Simulated assay, not measured.
Amino acid sequence: MVPSNSDGLFIWRGVGIPRDYRVNDRIRIAEVRLIDEAGKQLGVMPTRQALIFAQERGLDLVEVAPGSRPPVCRLMDYGKFRYEATRREREARKAQRSKTTNELREVRLEGRIGDHDLETKIRQVKRLLGEGSKVRVSVRFRGREITHPEIGMALLRRVAESLVEDAGMEKAPSFEGRFLAMILAPISTGGKSSKPKDEPAQQTEKEKTRA
């Protein structure tokens, strides 16, 4: 059940929530029309009796239609109700951002990146994908590392396989100078499997010279 303080704020998970429904002993009218947690009409009864119904079922008495005569109250878990309402609102905002965001972001890796740092980068890519952005994931080769493209390919494969539920492969790994890069798109855009092929696209002679 949801306790309330003397200021009329409902205390939910330790946070004061501005009152928009009267709950439990904040309902001070003599009689209410009661609906149970399953939606069944229980009729008009004294508010004290309705509170007893709520307490016996481990629920809250919530005034949902204060303008009615008598006011309509319903039995529910008010904390869960507010939590679900907040979650739905948050998901709606996230979905809206995903529809309007198509920015290409980039996350760069180093050939000698450690496991912990790589996991951090993967979480960063996952967050950007969750915001609706496409992500260019690249591996930078230093010095003679360029002669071992399999190192970069292994890193990109690990990233892609970790995000197979979140991302589709928009552009397969290919060399861009000293970078081996792929582009991942949120899975909702209809991208194909994010798992890269075994070999990156070969460098052109011009790219090798520039590298």
Score class of each variant (00 low, 15 high):
residue 1 M to V: 06
residue 4 S to D: 03
residue 6 S to Q: 13
residue 7 D to W: 01
residue 13 R to D: 15
residue 14 G to N: 03
residue 14 G to E: 04
residue 14 G to H: 06
residue 15 V to M: 14
residue 15 V to K: 14
residue 17 I to T: 06
residue 19 R to G: 11
residue 20 D to G: 03
residue 21 Y to S: 06
residue 22 R to M: 06
residue 24 N to T: 02
residue 29 I to Y: 04
residue 30 A to H: 12
residue 32 V to L: 05
residue 32 V to H: 04
residue 32 V to M: 05
residue 39 G to V: 03
residue 41 Q to A: 12
residue 41 Q to F: 14
residue 41 Q to R: 04
residue 44 V to F: 03
residue 52 I to R: 15
residue 54 A to F: 08
residue 56 E to M: 15
residue 57 R to E: 15
residue 58 G to Q: 08
residue 60 D to N: 12
residue 63 E to G: 13
residue 64 V to F: 06
residue 65 A to V: 13
residue 69 R to F: 10
residue 69 R to S: 15
residue 76 M to L: 15
residue 79 G to F: 11
residue 80 K to H: 13
residue 87 R to G: 04
residue 89 E to F: 12
residue 95 A to F: 11
residue 99 K to I: 10
residue 99 K to N: 12
residue 102 N to C: 07
residue 103 E to M: 09
residue 105 R to W: 07
residue 106 E to N: 06
residue 108 R to H: 06
residue 109 L to E: 03
residue 110 E to F: 14
residue 111 G to T: 08
residue 112 R to S: 12
residue 112 R to H: 05
residue 114 G to P: 00
residue 117 D to Q: 06
residue 119 E to C: 01
residue 120 T to M: 00
residue 121 K to H: 08
residue 121 K to I: 06
residue 122 I to C: 02
residue 125 V to D: 03
residue 126 K to Y: 02
residue 128 L to T: 00
residue 130 G to Q: 04
residue 131 E to C: 02
residue 133 S to N: 12
residue 135 V to Y: 08
residue 135 V to N: 13
residue 138 S to A: 15
residue 143 G to Y: 08
residue 148 H to S: 11
residue 148 H to A: 13
residue 149 P to L: 01
residue 149 P to K: 02
residue 150 E to H: 13
residue 152 G to Q: 05
residue 160 A to W: 04
residue 162 S to K: 03
residue 164 V to N: 10
residue 164 V to S: 15
residue 172 A to K: 11
residue 173 P to N: 05
residue 176 E to A: 10
residue 177 G to A: 12
residue 181 A to P: 01
residue 182 M to F: 10
residue 182 M to H: 02
residue 183 I to E: 14
residue 184 L to V: 01
residue 186 P to V: 02
residue 187 I to D: 08
residue 188 S to D: 09
residue 195 K to A: 10
residue 195 K to W: 01
residue 195 K to I: 09
residue 197 K to V: 00
residue 198 D to G: 00
residue 208 K to I: 02
residue 208 K to N: 01
residue 210 R to Q: 09
